[in-house]
Amino acid sequence: MNIFRITGDLSHLISIFILLHKMRTSKSCIGISFKSQVLYLIVYVTRYLDLLWTFQHSAYNSLMKIIFIASSAYTIHLMLNDFKPTHDPNIDTFKVEYLIGGSAILALLFPYKWTTAEVLWSFSIWLESVAILPQLFMLQRTGEAETITTHYIFALGAYRALYIPNWLYRYFTESFTDPISTIAGIIQTILYSDFFYIYYTKY
């Protein structure tokens, strides 16, 4: 565990709290892409299936995995029930089929091992790298986003961006390599880069 990894994870946690706080205080999910949220739930469920057999390996990892799955499911629950009237499907129109299909193809072609768990893990890594696209697309369509939504996207993007120095650090200190995560993480950070640029110039 290094400073980049822990800061990245904290950034991810913060993004979740920002999102839930925004929805609960404004009693709405305006500006939040339901499609992106569903993609994130798929990402966490397919990646953290290993909770079933690695639960005892790391209390930290297991706790975080449970938080990510639970908060993601809770977010979707809120969007489907409490705040459903504030969700406008007409502006949340990104074609996620391509993201899911593309991630599935990459996962099937280049997993570390052709086992169900490894293919699903790889699928989740690729899908996470593009899961923000419906949200960014929606942001672009609606123009101005609420400040709080902007902070949410920033914190979520910072999480994976911070993993990049973490992988570099781990490569030099423990010869750790994880090409799938690294390539997908770089793609993910590139997708956020335009947003990051606007964020920095604005705040």
């Binding site: 975080m64 995995k65 091992k113 390599t177």
Partner: peptide, 10 residues
Amino acid sequence: KGHPETHDEL
């Protein structure tokens, strides 16, 4: 590397 148990990140 690659076995599920080696995925020690989130």
